[in-house]
Design a protein around this nucleic acid. Structure first.
Lengths: 338, 338
DNA sequence: CACTGGCACTCGGATTGTGAGAGTGCCAAG
DNA sequence: CTTGGCACTCTCACAATCCGAGTGCCAGTG
């Protein structure tokens, strides 16, 4: 029995099953795909594929459906990313070009992704400690508080309130602001900790308290408790696939409300354009064992800002999803690189 | 036939139906509530209530369920808000006290609300033009751009990018920043337009371009295109009530992804503590005709910052929801008033 | 040796029929 | 006005049945 044909059969099964949602049997298989052999032959191949764990039958007299392992093989070796059509690309382009600030870009991206992939879209804000400082601002709020505003080159604006001991800090503030900016603006946030190492020494001892409070908050913002955000959209698309998530829509929705889970699903940001696929139980969130996640990094050049991704039923059109996702990622990266 | 007893019957029906989810018949009604009359009598009352449109029967041999009109009467005249227990209040208190900034307060509130009411929670950020200016900051970004950062007394931080003609604006910037703050800080945002009316005259003509660009963006931020945000959470709670939204979960989820719809649902912010209830088709979003929205304002004193609310099936425990909602609103208002 | 046609077998899903139970409306009597 | 009684209706649950899709296996063929 030819191994090559067996793979061809697997591909056909995946494609048919994804398209129709019905378990696919040997007969329709030879009808719809020109395999050049009879259904009995295909049956033998299918039996072999089942033994090897690539497909399984829901019950005796139904067709076969791919297993997670089957999808994995399909994604890795049997499919190629399906690029978007030029009109689709243009639509994405113009839609993203209309954005006015980072929040707008992220919001538009999530809606866009949900729309073109018809799945749940996940969009992560540019990761803080991969960005560079564009500016740090210190705004006095009343007498005892200071608002630290940090602006990054990717357009993120982070704020933290700093509580101070009473006292008139106006005088030193301008100095502090200017020195701090000279020191760290243009630098990567991940380098900030070492840069500010002996920063406090440049100030008279009387001001050390203030300076240290500011530095502490700054470091907390960028290093200790960097706030990574993921926005999601298109949850309504989950209902379309209610057969896939039998009665388990609830846990899925619950899981998606946890930022931690979303970050976990998107995984570590890799290089832009390297697409990551987690199929079924491969993702580590157990209530999401019936779901697949496709993710990809976006950024400038080969430097990744963060990840965007899509979550859907295991039975998903992987080639199309991957194509759409990487196209969107490219445009988002571009939109943020100006 | 006593009108009073009829109302008592309606109340009993609403309470039973909300508790069990099953249409309620005359027999269980007299068993579970001590109405002091026989089931036949209740049947007569029920027939009358049905004629008047307060209840209806899904089919001949089932019990009755309240109509929208029935719930309306129940909410208006037959129920009283059920206050939370002291331990619940304490839990809310301490949970909200842990918040560090506005975003955190909003995020915590939405999770809290979703949790205590077991419904979908809606939380609106403090409305911009009801807040006052705490500080305006102008941050130069490169040579041709300026970031306008507006901080309000409710903790909102809005940013807008301003594109400038080339030129060195450093000199005038400090002056502009200081004058602008003197002029508008502490003032209500809604008063800003009239305040800045002749502001530009104080500057030499050479700088009018810059000043006017800044003012234009400021006005756009506060007046023309104020960005009102609503966050929502607890959508997983919708699945619990899948009988209520028969197959219509999809349109509900879709509607909830539209900011405009959310704002519409919450309605105009009224005085804090005046609870608003929209039952079934009373809300103007047609795909949400099977849902009820309970909302209430939060704020400081009798000044409302914005609304928070809850969306759930028409068959909802209104007294409990209203109690929880107004308690949360009180604590949120307090948390933001410091 | 790989492929094919044929055939018996299995099993799930749809359909239909039946009965039980719940609830009603109405009526006549208290 | 209230009540007990009764006939009626309708849904739901369950069982029995049937149909068809799909399989596995086997013997035959190039």
């Amino acid at each position: 029995m030819s191994d090559e044909r067996k793979l061809e059969v697997l591909r056909a099964i995946v494609e048919d099953y994804v398209a129709t949602g019905e378990p696919v049997g040997s007969k329709v298989l030879v009808e719809r795909h020109k395999l050049g052999v009879s259904s009995a032959t295909v049956r033998n191949d299918m039996a072999a594929l089942e033994d090897e764990g690539y497909i399984s039958a829901p019950h005796t007299s139904a067709g076969r459906i791919p297993t997670d392992k089957g999808y994995r093989l399909f994604v890795d070796r049997l499919s190629q990313v399906k690029p978007l059509s030029p009109p689709e690309r243009r639509a994405i382009q113009t839609f993203l070009d209309g954005a006015v600030d980072l929040e707008d870009v992220m919001g538009r991206t999530v809606r866009l992704l949900a729309h073109v992939t018809r799945q749940v879209a996940l969009v992560q804000y540019p990761i803080l400690n991969r960005s560079s400082v564009r500016h740090v601002e210190l705004v006095p709020i009343g007498l005892t508080r200071l608002l630290l505003v940090l602006i990054t080159d990717t357009g993120r604006v982070e704020q933290r309130m700093i509580e101070l001991a009473v006292g008139d800090h106006e005088a030193i503030l301008a100095e502090l602001r200017s020195r701090l900016n000279t020191l760290i603006s243009g630098k990567r946030l991940s380098d900030v900790p070492s840069l500010v190492d002996s920063f406090v020494d440049a100030f008279p001892p009387a001001d050390h308290g203030l300076v240290e409070a500011v530095l502490a908050t700054l470091l907390e913002t960028v290093v200790e408790r960097p706030e990574e955000r993921v926005v999601l959209g298109g949850t309504a698309n989950l209902t379309r696939a209610r057969d896939e998530f039998p009665l388990t829509l609830q846990p899925v929705l619950e899981a998606l409300e946890e930022q931690v889970v979303l970050l976990q699903l998107l995984g570590e940001a890799g290089a832009p354009d390297s697409i990551n696929v987690l199929i079924g139980a491969e993702n580590t969130v157990e209530s999401l064992a019936g779901a697949s996640v496709v993710s990809v990094g976006y950024g400038r050049g080969d430097e990744a800002f963060a990840q965007i991704g899509v979550l859907g039923p295991t039975r998903m059109d992987y080639p199309a999803t991957m194509g759409a996702l990487s196209a969107v990622a490219r445009y988002v990266g571009r939109a943020l690189s100006e």
